[in-house]
Nucleic acid binder design. Structure first.
Lengths: 158, 158
DNA sequence: AACAATTAAATTGTATACAATACTATTTGA
DNA sequence: TCAAATAGTATTGTATACAATTTAATTGTT
């Protein structure tokens, strides 16, 4: 008796975002091919160029990635000469990620290449800003809902 | 002498999208936990509920995924009883993906659960539509730029 | 000081993604 | 017609993601 509204793929915001994310990933990956950086490696480098040195934990908070993803990624970056990983002497649990001289030297070259990519989007800064604001709002709402669900669960358990 | 504009993580549209995509993925994954469907498995089911049967190739075009991703994913869906995979008799190269009776039976239950999730976003249909339109525009632009680059390459080769 | 609780990374296991290659079936062109 | 080209799927190899567990170091408490 009760009609259920069909869920159509093309009407799902999640699918637009999922799909756009993969396309961006691919786009930057090929733009970064001369540097042999993958997209996740690239955003790790962006964070480090802003704030190095960082602990694995700090980098993880910035990128929303855990050690299960970051540890192997950082080992690959180390192997390719972008970073060094060294245990903190004041707290042996922590691993500090430092930039190498090569990473510092190549920074502006990467900045320049990516800066060009941004303009290729053909969007004004205002348009990009507006889109980003919406996306952040969606993210925050998802966090909020997840948080409430978690509390509901806890309440139910008691 | 020439100043290079720094590339700041928080100003990158790609990072907003990447980050929102992961969050959506996680959000739906937990909403779908009762059905033991991952997010990519779920969108495959959405496409199949709309149009089954589909060949692997057709499904790949719909989801923008290739056989390297879909073959193992579909094998897992088959193992869990959602789909069957059978070689087409008219063209033995093709593998047709059919829904099982269980998949058809559970469709509305999934539709209902996901329909509820949409409302949790607290956005109007207009807002969601506007955001999706922007995202599609970004995707198209990325495709366009990639296409031009490809042509440039070919021209350069000649 | 002793020891439980906590924290930080690494590891393990599962599931995407995707480039590149392989394999088979079909189609096409000389 | 039959060999070359093409098409559809599967496989291999590399790189994320992330939950869950493990290990080691630090902190808090008594």
């Amino acid at each position: 008796m009760s009609e259920v509204t069909p869920v159509l793929l093309d009407e799902q915001l999640c699918f637009s975002i999922y799909s756009a994310s993969k396309k961006f990933n691919h786009f930057y990956q090929s733009a970064l091919a001369p540097f042999k950086l993958t997209y996740p490696q690239y955003i790790a480098m962006l964070a480090l160029w802003e704030d190095a040195p960082l602990t694995v934990h700090q980098l993880g908070q910035r990128l929303e990635l855990d050690s299960g993803t970051l540890t192997p990624l950082l080992k690959r970056l180390e192997k390719q000469g972008w970073v060094t990983r060294m245990r903190s002497r004041t707290d042996e649990r922590q691993v500090m990620i430092h930039l190498t001289a090569m990473a510092t030297a190549k920074r502006d070259e990467v900045y320049q290449r990516i800066g060009q990519c941004q303009t290729l989007l053909g969007m004004s800064d205002q348009e990009i800003q507006a889109l980003m604001t919406d996306l952040v709002a969606v993210k925050n709402q998802l966090d909020e809902v997840s948080r409430q669900r978690l509390i509901d669960k806890k309440v139910n358990v008691q």
